[in-house]
């Protein structure tokens, strides 16, 4: 009981001189008010706990370095100022970042989507690619050539006709035959090319 009567400034001096119990007394004396102050600003127990810890780490660092502690000022108001500065600094840093917590009613994944394809869709697209290659290989060589140039190399019909040394109409015709033939192969073999 006697210890609770010791003034803050004396306890701080005792702590600076190496008495670790003095800090425990100070924390015990003011933990409720400091924690309440932090909680009133952040409205989250876990975050308030983090700030409480960070505040006292700063207090300890400052006192142990004997850098600054104004004995005339009150210990509590000094600690509250440190806590307030920490919260304000973090708020300034994070003011553009909206914080959302996962709860039972609200799942964070309802607004965040994973854009990467699933294993299933990867398997399906691999299978479609494999089937498509097999179908193209069934086509006559001149049709294969036009189709590959148009779809895989994204060449224009003008470029294709120049590259294959035929007229543009022939290239267009080969393309039409290629697509018709592919449809026939798909129907004949009952291949499904949709995901």
């Amino acid at each position: 009981m006697a210890k609770s009567q010791v003034p803050d400034s004396v306890l701080v001096q005792m702590y600076i001189s190496g008495n670790e119990d003095a800090l425990a007394t100070l924390i015990n004396r003011y933990q409720s008010r400091i924690f309440g102050f932090i909680y009133s600003k952040v409205n989250d127990r876990d975050i308030a706990d983090d700030y409480f810890q960070e505040t006292f780490i700063r207090v300890i660092n400052t006192l142990k370095s004997k850098k600054y502690y104004d004995e005339k000022g009150k210990f509590l108001s000094w600690v509250l100022r440190i806590a307030n500065n920490l919260i304000v600094d973090d708020f300034r840093k994070n003011k553009n970042i909206k914080m959302l917590r996962d709860t039972e009613e609200f799942s964070i994944f309802s607004i965040i989507k994973d854009a990467t394809p699933s294993v299933e869709s990867n398997l399906i697209s691999t299978q479609i690619g494999y089937d498509l290659r097999k179908i193209i290989e069934e086509l006559p060589l001149d049709q294969q050539e036009v189709l590959k140039m148009r779809f895989f190399q994204e060449m224009t019909f003008k470029e294709i006709s120049e590259a294959t040394n035929v007229s543009m109409n022939t290239s267009l015709g080969r393309m039409r035959y290629a697509i018709n033939n592919m449809r026939k192969i798909i129907e004949k073999n009952q291949i499904y090319l949709t995901a």
């Binding site: 409720s32 308030a48 409480f52 006292f56």
Partner: peptide, 11 residues
């Protein structure tokens, strides 16, 4: 309102 005991212990 009180901080967790673990937090005090850590400090």
């Amino acid at each position: 309102m009180l901080p967790k005991k673990e937090t005090i212990q850590l400090i």
